[in-house]
């Protein structure tokens, strides 16, 4: 069973670049934070696909840890925007 994973990874990478457009344009700080949050989600998807492409489970562990750590980062940005930090 040969699945072509790489085209989907490429599409996701292009989506990350498009999300970075909003990071560049975004009029307020909130837009930029939302864009970074989106990039984090897409990076998790890319890591899962790369893990199954290279047949290495460690990529998926990295994806789990990345999801948790980026969540902490998002919470800090949100606290900072709300002026509670």
């Amino acid at each position: 069973m040969n699945i072509m994973w790489m085209p989907f990874v490429l599409v996701l990478v292009i989506l990350v670049l498009l999300a970075l457009v909003r990071l560049f344009l975004g009029p307020t700080a909130g837009d930029r934070a939302v864009s970074v949050d989106t990039v984090n989600t897409l990076v998790v998807a890319i890591l899962i696909l790369l893990g199954v492409y290279f047949k290495e489970v460690i990529y998926i562990d990295v994806a789990i840890v990345f999801a948790l750590l980026s969540f902490v980062g998002t919470l800090f940005v949100a606290k900072y925007l709300g002026g509670e930090l």
Binding site: A29, A33, I48, I60, V77, A78
Partner: peptide, 26 residues
């Protein structure tokens, strides 16, 4: 992979709620 998807669903929901609250407070 299942654990990664579950973690992602939870953290995304909570993170976007926190972001919305922070943006509204700002």
């Amino acid at each position: 992979t299942i654990i990664a998807a579950l973690v992602l669903a939870f953290t995304n929901a909570i993170g976007s709620h926190a972001l919305a609250r922070g943006v509204h407070k700002s």
